[in-house]
Design a binder for these strands. Structure first.
Lengths: 341, 341
DNA sequence: CTGTTAGCGCGTTCAA
DNA sequence: TTGAACGCGCTAACAG
């Protein structure tokens, strides 16, 4: 295969020659890290521009040892939350002069390790892990190898992490349902190997306890984060004669699945069944019955994560952002018990 | 910032020394392109493995001139279709020994150009463009600069392209509605600056013409590909006293928006209004009323695109994959006219 | 601020 | 098949 810029390979030597200076002067003039102000430097930059000079990233990287590139590891990009997270990371990285490079790792720890190696082989300056498993070995290994890294959307309590406060988010969601007058509340949460699943559940339980409501264990369902998990949980909850009047779903996918199950049981979301999701996916606001959801400030989390890598410091290495509840039509007061605040 | 592998930088020299051979022998032994068979080579590989040697991609790239990396340009990854497309490209690239690197370019041609430069600066061996605009200058420029590239999901008729046959897809969708007995059919399509929008519309018109149905121009709506566009189109179509009994939406987002509008007008999708989407997004099958949609073989398109770059040949440079219609509950026979096939 | 010099790690000559 | 030598393009250390 042809090198990509075949034909037009303008090198630093060319720029130096055309500018009438030495190569190293040209190099310095074009060094974006030190704003060299001299008139000669300006001239070099002009010449470089005219010649269409582009620094060879290999040679530069080989010499400098850094790439201003961060690697991002996500399980999959077809998960909207992951896609949004990456877009924000890309933006935050860019604003600090970094480029973000993604690799998808699926759910298998081996694939994850391989993907991490792939990124490291490309000399990324650091790694951002958006993969979810709590029992993941990778952060520990990265610490041992002293690879700069940060976790996003979850934490293992040790590696630098940027995430939303999921416990508070879970609390807000269930508290909202309680405030609407509900007391028959079910919770459908994610896998137990994710910190998000655990924390959101904990917050939900705190809200229930605070209102002196028992958490009925048959109304607490733990499963995956996919729509189909929400659907089967919904079938289970809504198929019984005694069903909850409100459900907190630990993400919007689960909520979507519950919506489908509710539809099958001819329950109207908002009227017959109050529903709260999590993540405030763009879709949530635009559903036939707009979904109440807990908003997570992904932009802020992204900036924090980039900072944790780019400016490692002594400050708290686990930084939480506050989620907020966005009420929409999917959550109304219960019909029967006649509550409403 | 620390170089990422600080402390454990095993170089080719180390491997050579530990193996008792020269650097160049070690280099050859580890060259993945030529399966070097000698016993000494095997020994070198074993030593390299043990030492945890990893080739320095900068030095290698500097010398070889190629990176086995392809750059992918998408407008945004939060668009599920784009995310799926990238995942498939990543997979197809990987199976051919390439790594896929993505950059998002938004909708602005300038940003697109910048993003392309960013990828080229990283010495990608080729570029895959999933950006949509027909009036885009980039492909032409890439041809002029002789940059290996391919377009996916659309074509300009000149640059190598891999895409679904959108005209056929549009035809299949509307033909399906006609076969169900509908004659009052509306079409909501994407922007006119996208080849997908134009071709899907053309296919729809062909199906209508073939069935001797007039395309009522007030039932032909052109807009964006977002949910909100679908919603406003739905409001427009369903708000009038004379409304269509079936709608073909040129993507699943538009269909979702129409679903929301139908809900507002208390029309039941499937019974009161038949609806067909496009792309067969994972969500489509899992909606409360599962959405009939035109499936596009993204995996095949991805493989084709990679091939077009990796093995450029004289074969047709614009290659189309066949879409297929996936019927679901959202499309039923019309109520009033009592059709049914 | 400038130019000279050295070398990053690797792949590929070339001669043995 | 092997090893010695060279240089890819750039940046950093050094001296002026």
């Amino acid at each position: 295969m042809e090198p990509v810029a075949s034909g037009s390979i303008v090198t630093l030597r060319d720029v130096a020659a055309a500018s009438g200076v030495s190569i190293s002067t040209a190099s310095r003039a074009l060094d974006e890290r030190t704003a060299s102000r001299s008139a000669a430097a300006a001239h070099v930059r002009k010449v470089a521009e005219e010649l269409g000079y582009r620094r060879n990233s290999f040679a530069s990287g080989l010499r400098r040892g850094e790439t201003r590139t961060l690697g991002v590891l996500v399980p999959r990009l077809s998960d909207t939350v992951m896609a949004l997270m990456f877009e924000e990371l890309e933006r935050a990285a860019s604003s600090r002069g970094y480029f973000a490079m993604v690799a998808t790792s699926g759910d298998d720890p081996n694939d994850e390790r391989r993907a991490a190696e792939t990124l490291l082989d490309r000399n990324v300056d650091g790694l951002i892990l958006a993969t979810a498993r709590l029992d993941d070995e990778l952060p520990r290994r990265l610490r041992e190898r002293k690879v700069a890294h940060a976790l996003v959307l979850r934490t293992d309590g040790v590696s630098p992490s940027a995430l939303g406060d999921d416990e508070v988010g879970g609390y807000l969601a269930v508290r909202h349902l309680i405030d609407l007058g509900h007391s028959d509340i079910a919770v459908v949460t994610g896998p137990t190997f994710t910190s998000t699943g655990i924390a959101r559940m904990a917050g939900a339980r705190r809200a229930l306890a605070e209102a002196h409501l028992d958490a009925r264990e048959e109304w607490i369902i733990t499963g995956g984060y996919g729509i189909e998990n929400g659907f089967s949980a919904g079938e289970e909850l809504l198929g019984r004669e005694s069903r909850p009047t409100a459900i907190f779903a630990a993400n919007d996918n689960i909520a979507m699945g519950i919506m489908a199950a509710a539809h099958r049981h001819e329950l109207k979301i908002g009227a017959d069944l109050a529903l709260v999701g999590y993540n405030d996916t763009p879709l949530a606001a635009r559903l036939p019955t707009p979904l109440t959801s807990v908003h997570v400030p992904l932009d802020q989390i992204a900036r924090t994560a980039i900072d944790l890598i780019v400016e490692p410091g002594a400050e708290p290495q686990v930084r939480m952002s506050m989620p907020s509840l966005i009420p929409r039509e999917s959550s109304g007061a219960p019909l029967v018990h006649g509550g409403g605040k």
